[in-house]
């Protein structure tokens, strides 16, 4: 299962005016695999995710999803084929309630049987009657993950799923990501928390200067001299 490519983006180039944000960037996500996308702020992690999710048109490059080249990527169409783009900013409607979010996913994606389990695992029971706008960053992340558990997607692009999550909740988030991968979901997670991301992933991609470098496993990434010098810093 791990050799089946679910999402493949290659040669992606994006410019905003004169500023080149992505330059020949790529992403290859395998079924059942978890890929960590690391990079400093402004290196293009979110932009690459948004291109892969069909939220932003690339100037160059191509995307294949589940074996088909996607000529005009659109999130709504990719979602119908199994993609879920998850971020605390993008995947929630602030005015809707937590229960409405979960029930919408359950109804649309036949996830009623997974709903209670998702609520329990992400400990959202006490927040069900709250609106998403009133949740903290960490609670929004847990809701985003709960939606992913209800959706059971073929591919999950999770933008900074550990951002704002309290230390005691991080293991819940990591477990949810691992469980999704165990069902065959191809997962990509971005962020800055090296320990969390390395702990959950089996492949590491480093984004630097708008391009991507596959570093292999987290152990191999730690041994990369350039990655240590350019991202981890001397302390690690």
């Amino acid at each position: 299962m791990a050799d089946v490519l679910v999402l493949e983006a290659d040669g992606i180039g994006v410019s905003f005016g004169q500023r080149e944000v992505l330059r020949a960037a790529g992403l290859r996500l395998r079924a059942g695999g978890i890929t960590a996308l690391l990079g400093r702020n402004g290196e293009g992690k979110t932009t690459l995710f948004r291109v892969a999710a069909g939220l932003l048109r690339a100037d160059q490059g191509w995307i294949r999803f589940r074996g088909r080249t996607v000529l005009r990527p659109r999130l709504a169409r990719l979602a119908q084929q199994g993609l879920l783009y998850s971020s605390q900013e993008a995947s929630l409607a602030p005015g809707l309630g937590v229960r409405e979010h979960l029930e919408a996913y359950a109804r649309r994606w036949d996830g009623a049987g997974r709903l209670n389990d998702a609520v329990e695992r992400m400990r959202l029971g006490e927040w069900l009657e709250h609106r998403a706008v009133g949740l903290s960053g960490g609670e929004r992340q847990r809701l985003s993950l709960a939606l992913a558990l209800v959706r059971a997607p073929a591919c999950l692009l999770a933008d900074e799923p550990f951002a704002g999550v309290a230390p005691r909740d991080r293991e819940d988030v990591a477990d949810a990501i691992r469980d999704l991968a165990d069902t065959g979901c191809a997962v990509a997670v971005s962020g800055h928390d090296v320990d969390d991301l390395f702990g959950v992933s089996d492949q590491v991609i480093w984004m630097t200067a708008g391009t991507t470098r596959e570093l292999g496993t987290p152990e191999e990434a730690r041994e990369s001299f350039e990655f240590r010098r350019g991202y981890l810093g001397p302390a690690r």
Binding site: A76, R108, R151
Partner: peptide
């Protein structure tokens, strides 16, 4: 503006 179209896009519903 309220990002409801993004929420719906994840549900496979266009604008």
């Amino acid at each position: 503006r309220r990002r409801e179209t993004l929420f719906l896009a994840n549900l496979g519903i266009p604008w």
